[in-house]
């Protein structure tokens, strides 16, 4: 549907990738780990290696969770765009097909200390 308007109505997106000075937004979240109230917003260059994203900011951010110590990144299940997906840890975000504002989710079956069974 279009916006009801008195003349042609065109919206300019505020968060286009050009506005981030060569970086892009990536969202990441740990399924069923709701100590973290919302998915994390990260702003990174697309050349960042996936491994550096995971072992850098992501590992740092999840430390407050009691499951963090037991988290084995080689065993987690990944989702991108809410679909199962397998990353290449040594490829860049761009080469992994991770676009601007893509949402990555990871799951750790059996490792859910603070979460009641649904």
């Amino acid at each position: 549907m279009t916006v009801a308007a008195i003349r042609e109505y065109i919206g300019v997106p505020r968060d286009s990738v050009e506005n981030f000075g060569g970086k892009q937004i990536v969202y990441a979240s740990w399924d069923r780990h709701l100590l973290f109230a919302a998915p994390f917003l990260l702003c990174l260059p697309p050349e960042t290696r996936f491994r550096d994203l995971v072992e850098g900011p992501l590992t740092a951010l999840v430390q407050a969770d009691p499951d963090a110590a037991a988290l084995d990144w080689t065993k987690v299940e990944w989702l991108k765009d809410n679909q199962p997906w397998t990353p290449d840890f040594d490829a860049s975000l761009a080469d992994n097909g991770i676009g601007h504002k893509d949402q990555l989710r990871f799951r750790t079956a059996g490792l859910n200390s603070l979460s009641a069974a649904a």
Partner: peptide, 19 residues
């Protein structure tokens, strides 16, 4: 229903990483 309107949203978190 009205994407042309909401694409313009000024979202404070992404804005923090812009000028």
């Amino acid at each position: 229903n009205e994407p042309e309107k909401y694409v313009q949203a000024w979202l404070p978190m992404p804005q923090l990483f812009q000028e």
